[in-house]
Design a protein around this nucleic acid. Sequence first.
DNA 1: CTGAAAGCGCTTACAG
DNA 2: CTGAAAGCGCTTACAG
Lengths: 353, 353
Amino acid sequence: MAEHTTKVKRPTIKDIARESGYSKTAVSFAFNDPSRISKKACEQILSTAEKLGYIPDPMARNFSLRRHLSIGFLLPQEIQYSLNNPYTQQVLLGIGSVCEKFGYTLTLIPPLNESVTEAVRNAAVDGLITMGMQVDMDIVSVMQTRHLSYVTIDGTADKQMPSVNINDEEASYEIMKTVLQAGHRQLCIIGLGKDVFAENATSPSLPSRRLAGYRRALEEVNLSLDDVTMLVCEPTLEEGKKKGNEILALDKNITCVVAMSDIVAIGCILSWSEAGKKIPQDISIAGFDNIDEASFITPKLTTIDQPAHEKGRLAAQALFQMINKAPLESVHIEIPYTLIKRDSVFDLTSQQL
Amino acid sequence: MAEHTTKVKRPTIKDIARESGYSKTAVSFAFNDPSRISKKACEQILSTAEKLGYIPDPMARNFSLRRHLSIGFLLPQEIQYSLNNPYTQQVLLGIGSVCEKFGYTLTLIPPLNESVTEAVRNAAVDGLITMGMQVDMDIVSVMQTRHLSYVTIDGTADKQMPSVNINDEEASYEIMKTVLQAGHRQLCIIGLGKDVFAENATSPSLPSRRLAGYRRALEEVNLSLDDVTMLVCEPTLEEGKKKGNEILALDKNITCVVAMSDIVAIGCILSWSEAGKKIPQDISIAGFDNIDEASFITPKLTTIDQPAHEKGRLAAQALFQMINKAPLESVHIEIPYTLIKRDSVFDLTSQQL
DNA sequence: CTGAAAGCGCTTACAG
DNA sequence: CTGAAAGCGCTTACAG
C-alpha cells in the first residue's frame, strides 16, 4: 500500500497513551474513574484526547465489560406488519421508557434471512422481549443456550417463560357476552394470524385463549363456534379493510363482527363506510385493545381496554431484574383489563320491531 | 470462591476446539466458511458445539470484524414524546424495512442521562439517522469524530449533513393559502416544539421554514405573522388536546387553526368535540403530515401529505450507501408532497350570509 | 486441509 | 498515583 493511502484511522487508547505520555491504564481511568489518577494526569489525558479527536470505542468497552447496554424487542415478522399496529407501538413505548431509565438502548430485531431463530442467535443484546412466545419453540432454546434473559408478552405462561398478560379468556368472554346480550346471533369472528413462532406449539396460544372465551359466552346462549363465521388476519389497517369487504361480499347477513384487534375493527369500519353501510345499524362490530384510534373513529368502538404501555413497562422491568440477577416477585404478571362499551354494537333488543 | 459456585459459563470457541480436537481456526471456519475445512472436521465441530451448547458470541464476532450490524435512530427527547406521533412511527417503519433488507437491527437511542450527545458518544451502531438535525450542533461533531455515517430527516441541509426533506416552505405556503382562500382571517398557528438539539443553531430549522411558508401566504392577503395567534407544542395527541382547549379559552374568535402536525390537529378536534363545538363550522383546522388517522377522524382533515415511510426508507438507503462506502447520488434528497383538501376547513366565502 | 499466533480496543487485578 | 500485562471471544493472514 502506498504511503498516501491515509485512511483516516480513529485514534485508540494506545495513541492517547503515547501522545500524552501516560499509560493506557491511566487513559482508561481518565474516562471512567478520574478519582484514581492525579488531577494533572487527567487533564493532560483529556486534552490530548480532545486534540486527537478520541472518543472511547463503545463496542470495545462493552465487549470488555461483557455487556451490550441494549435490550432487544423481537419482531415476529417483517417490521411492516409487526409495528403497524398501535397496540404493539404502545407496548414498544412502554419497553422503551424503561430502557431509557436504565440508560439502555432498545434494539428492534427483525427476522434475519426470514428466520427469527437466526435473528436471536445473532442478537447483540443483554436480554429479549418477545410477543406471543411459547416454550416449545426453538427460539426459546436458543435464548437459553445463549444464557439470554427473556420475557414474553401475550405469550403462554410457563415456568421457563416469564410472562406479562391480561386474562384473555375472561376478557373475550365478556365482550362476546356484550354482543350476545345486544341480541346479535349472526356473527363473524376475526381472529389473529397464527403466530410465526408457533411451529409445533402445544399449549394454548393467545388466539386460542380468546377463542375459548368467545366459545364460553356462545355456549351460554346455546351457540357454538361452528355457528359463527371465522376469519383470520394480521393486525393491520389494510388487512382489516380487506376483511371488511370480504364480510360484505359473504352474503351471510352478519349483524355483528367480533375482532380480536381494534386496528382490524377500524379497518372494517372504514371499508363499510366507503361501501355506504350505516354502522352500527347495518352492521355492528366489537374490537380488542382500546387503542387511541378506537375512541375517535365514528362510531366509537366497543372494545376491551388493555394497558399496552403498561405491559411493555412491566415486561421490561422484569427483564432488567433478571439481567441484574435480582429475584422476580412473580414470574407471571397478570394485569387488569376493562370492558369499554361505546357505540359500535347496535342494541337489537331495544328496538322490538 | 468455593468450588460449588458453578457459574454456568457459556462455552467459547476454545472449549469447542479442545473438545472436538480441532483448532480455534477450524471451529471458526465451521461456522463462517465451512468450505475451508473438510466435511468431517465440520461435522465433528458442529456436533460438539451442539453438544456443549455453543453459539458463537455475536459481540465478539462483531468486535473482531469492526462492525455492529445495527443502525441507530436517535430520539431527540424521551421516547414517550418522540415515538408517540404516527408520523415518526411511519418514518421508523421506513427505516426498519431497509434495515431488515440488509440484515441489520435498528437501535432506538434515547438521550443518555438526559443528554443526546452522551447517547451518541456511546451508541453501538454503524450509522445514525436523526430527525431535525442541523450542522451547528455538537452532536454532529461527535458523529464526525467517531467517524459515524449519518443522515438527517427534516433537518437543515448542509454539505456536511446528508438529508431527506420535502419542500416545507412551499407545502406550508400552499396549505395556508388554502385556508386563506376559504376566507379565514382570525387564525392561530400551532408550531412544533423547538428542537432540543438546537442550542445555538443558525440556519433555519424545520419549524422556521414552515413559518416562512405561512408568512408568504399571509403577506399575499396583507397579513403578517403578527396578526396571527402563535402557539407551540410537542407533537402528541395529549398536547394537541391541551392546545385545543387553550384556544377555546382564548376568546379571540379564532375561525381556523393551522397546525404543523396532524396529531396535534386531531387532538384539537377531539377537545373541541368534547366541548360541543361543531367542526368545521364553529372552528376549522388544517394539519400537516397526512397520517392515517387524518382520514378517519370526523371531519376528515385537510392537510399536507408527506410520505413519512418513504422519508425513512430513503434516509436509511442513503445511510447504507455511506456505510458501504458507495457514493451517494445526491446528498440532499427532496421528495414530493401533496396538498390534501378534505372537510376540516369550512368555506366561509361560499355562504354569503 | 490445518493450526499457531497476532490482532480488534478496551478493562482491571496486581505489583510497585 | 502509576503502569505492565493478561484477558474479553472472536477472525484471519500466514506458513505448513
